Simulated assay, not measured.
Amino acid sequence: MLRFLFDEPPREATGCLEETLRLMEEFGSLVSKRIAAGQDADHRLRKYEIWTLGLRSALDELEQSSYAASHYKQKIRLVSVQQMSPEERLNYSRYVYYDKNGFIRVFSLLDKLGTLLNELLDMRTEKVKAHFSYFTVLRNMRERKAHPELTWKLNDVKEKYKEATNRLRKRRNTEIHYMNSEMHDDLIQSHRMYGEEAKLENIEQQAIDLSDGVTLAMESMRLSFQYGCKLMRN
């Protein structure tokens, strides 16, 4: 969708992305067959079908945002906005836009996945917490020792990217509840270096964190839909 911004052809999915999309398609097909066979009296399968389509779009949007952010990041050479030419400042603004879009979408996608898992696995997390996140669902799965074949794989992925996730969560919460995350960085610097020119936030670390966040989301989806396919086949 966004490759045209860089005069590139549309994306060809490979690796984990390709496998995740394939499993989502397989899961959707298995659900559709059950619906066609009259096995959806309570319309739960129809919800799974719609939610899967939504998750596919969300994954595509996240990958595209991350890709665009990485491209605009490569065009940034200077260490402060004040030193930038108008063109580089525009590229920096574009980087901020897509990076911000990316780290917000990491948690949005995971929470959509949590909603699907909560229903698919009958976890009833809403009885523990009315407004729950993916991580609340996963904690509920651990505490109840439910679906261990999936639970511990998802937990291992969560732990692997825990530090990056914590930094992304902090930036997401700042952006949504407090102020623009990049301006928050400027505010911190203004206290530490009062009267000096503020440097750019650590965009190298931000890029690594966003990449890890995308991998966390993608791998969590791959494992979840792999397990979902197994459930539907049985």
Rank of each mutant, 00 (worst) to 15 (best):
R89L: 08
L78K: 14
T215M: 15
T125Q: 09
L113F: 06
V81T: 14
L168M: 13
G54I: 04
S133I: 06
R139T: 11
D209V: 07
V106C: 11
S80C: 15
M141A: 14
R233Y: 01
L109E: 01
R46V: 01
M218Q: 12
R233F: 00
R142I: 09
R11L: 05
G102V: 04
Y161R: 09
V137A: 04
D156A: 15
Y98A: 07
V157T: 15
S211Q: 15
I104H: 10
E163P: 05
N173V: 09
H191V: 09
L200D: 04
L55G: 08
K160G: 00
K158C: 04
E143C: 04
T136E: 03
Y95I: 08
A58E: 13
E61H: 14
V128F: 07
R94S: 04
G54C: 07
S29E: 02
M232Y: 09
Y97A: 09
A41P: 00
D42M: 03
L21V: 15
K112F: 08
N180E: 13
L117M: 13
Q206C: 03
N140H: 13
E49T: 01
E143G: 10
I203V: 07
M183W: 11
L23N: 07
S32Y: 12
G15L: 12
I208F: 05
I188D: 03
E163S: 15
Q39G: 00
Y134C: 03
L5H: 13
F135W: 05
E219Y: 06
M179H: 11
K153Y: 00
E8P: 02
L59W: 02
T115R: 14
E88T: 12
V137D: 02
A68S: 13
L5T: 10
A198Y: 01
P9H: 12
Q205K: 15
N202D: 14
V96M: 02
F103C: 03
K47I: 08
F27K: 01
R3I: 00
T136R: 00
Y98F: 15
G15P: 12
E12K: 13
